[in-house]
């Protein structure tokens, strides 16, 4: 094919110029909508959700995971831009919030209760269901990032996985009766780590361009 003929095609095609950041935001919206419906249709929200939302532990649980989702989403969007310097500082804030939450819990709760707070009631289910709720957000984010051009596809996929996993965690928190920051710092983090790893593996193949 002649290069001049190819240029004729390129200048005629007006599609696909949508900014990547807009695509990522749309993927977030689709992922949230789908996974909220999935949660409500299966295990449902906890019966005392309204009262629980007024407690600092539940506020921490939802606030931390949402903050992490937004930060990781912003990093994932940057990771899709060729030549963009990736800065990890957006992730420092949620990490600090998590550390403060764990510290506060250790201060206010008697050491004898740390074990039961850490293990909680439904640790295994939490580690299982966060990845389930992350399937739709991860698929939407990977699809959006396929329009990007990541320098490192695996890394971009991992950040998409972290964003999807923490979004799923924020939604799972509506159901989850285990409210201790110790539980969040262990089981939630394990669930999110699984999704991050899955995103990295998927990204290595799906985000090559």
């Amino acid at each position: 094919m002649k290069t001049d003929d190819l240029i004729d095609l390129l200048v005629t095609d007006t599609g696909g110029a949508t900014p990547l950041a807009g695509r990522i935001r749309a993927a977030f919206a689709i992922g949230v909508a789908f996974s909220v419906l999935l949660l409500l249709a299966t295990i449902g929200a906890r019966p005392d959700l309204v009262a629980a939302l007024a407690t600092p532990r539940v506020q921490f649980k939802i606030g931390f995971t949402l903050l992490l989702a937004l930060s990781a989403g912003a990093v994932a969007a940057r990771a899709g831009v060729p030549g963009a310097r990736l800065r990890a500082w957006p992730l420092a804030l949620p990490a600090l919030v998590l550390a403060l939450g764990v510290g506060a819990e250790l201060v206010v709760s008697p050491p004898g209760t740390w074990g039961t707070r850490l293990v909680g009631a439904h640790a295994a289910f939490c580690v299982f269901f966060i990845p389930v709720l992350s399937i739709a957000p991860l698929a939407a984010l990977i699809r959006a990032l396929r329009e990007g051009a990541p320098d490192n596809p695996g890394r971009a996929g991992a950040f998409a996985g972290l964003a999807a996993g923490s979004l799923a965690a924020a939604i799972y928190a509506w159901h989850c009766p285990d409210d201790s920051p110790l539980f969040v710092a262990s089981w939630y983090v394990i669930g999110m780590a699984i999704v991050t790893a899955a995103g990295g593996i998927i990204g290595r193949r799906a985000l090559r361009w």
Partner: peptide
């Protein structure tokens, strides 16, 4: 041609 296609398809980034 491959690079031109990439510039075109990825211009949204």
């Amino acid at each position: 041609q491959e690079v031109l296609l990439a510039i075109h398809l990825k211009r949204g980034t």
